[in-house]
Computed example of a mutant assay.
Amino acid sequence: MDGSSSPVSAFKSRGGVARIFKALGYSLSGLAAAFRFESAFRQELLLIAVVVGLALVAKLPAIEWVMLVLSMGFVLVTELLNSALEAVVDRVSLERHPLSGRAKDIASAAVLISMGCLAFTFIVLVLPRLAVVLGLLK
């Protein structure tokens, strides 16, 4: 299949340097929309702010910061994808349908897994160092 018969969206970018700036604008609009319309996204940002604050107190080494930041990014990415999927499903139909529910539940499960990964990273990397800094452990 050579793809020549595939329809091309009128919204599809044609490329070039201008595309990079347009893509950045779309991405920033997406982040603003997530912040404005998605309470879970705002709650996760608040959670991340707390995690960062505690990690600063714990004085993590650079490699552990990398792992922590990747875990936090994983949470935000999965939440953004979950929110996007929910918006598309709701755009298609607001009627209850088992497949719509399944799609939303599976996307929500992805967020749960990412939150579990962040919790694990926090427990393994931050809590022990935080306990030492606070004098709870020697």
Rank of each mutant, 00 (worst) to 15 (best):
S4R: 11
S6L: 15
P7H: 09
P7T: 07
S9N: 05
A10E: 14
A10W: 07
F11P: 01
F11H: 14
F11V: 08
S13A: 15
R14N: 07
G15I: 03
V17A: 12
V17S: 12
V17N: 09
A18G: 09
R19L: 12
K22V: 11
K22P: 00
A23Q: 08
A23R: 06
A23V: 06
L24I: 14
G25N: 10
G25H: 05
S27F: 15
S27P: 03
L28P: 04
S29C: 10
S29D: 11
G30P: 00
L31Q: 06
L31V: 14
A32E: 12
A34P: 02
F35N: 09
R36P: 01
R36L: 14
E38F: 10
E38H: 12
S39Q: 12
S39K: 13
S39I: 06
F41V: 01
R42I: 04
Q43H: 10
E44W: 00
E44K: 04
E44L: 05
L45V: 05
L46F: 11
I48W: 03
A49K: 07
V50T: 05
V51M: 02
V52M: 06
G53L: 03
G53R: 02
G53D: 04
L54E: 07
L54S: 06
L54Q: 07
L56E: 10
V57M: 07
A58H: 08
L60D: 00
P61G: 05
P61N: 08
A62M: 06
A62Q: 07
I63D: 15
I63W: 13
I63A: 15
E64C: 01
E64A: 08
W65D: 04
V66Q: 10
V66G: 11
M67K: 11
V69N: 00
L70V: 12
L70S: 06
L70C: 07
L70I: 02
S71F: 04
S71H: 04
M72F: 01
G73V: 02
G73C: 02
F74P: 00
V75K: 01
V77W: 05
L80Y: 06
L81H: 10
N82D: 10
S83D: 05
A84N: 13
L85W: 02
L85P: 02
V88S: 13
V89R: 08
V89A: 12
V89E: 07
R91I: 03
V92R: 11
V92Y: 06
V92I: 12
S93W: 03
L94P: 01
L94K: 15
L94H: 11
R96L: 10
R96D: 15
H97L: 03
H97F: 03
L99W: 13
G101D: 13
A103Q: 05
I106L: 15
A109V: 05
A110R: 04
L112I: 13
L112H: 09
I113Q: 08
M115G: 10
G116Y: 01
G116A: 09
C117F: 15
A119P: 02
A119K: 02
A119M: 10
T121S: 13
F122T: 08
V124P: 00
V124C: 03
V124N: 05
L125Q: 02
L125G: 02
V126N: 05
V126L: 04
L127Q: 04
P128W: 01
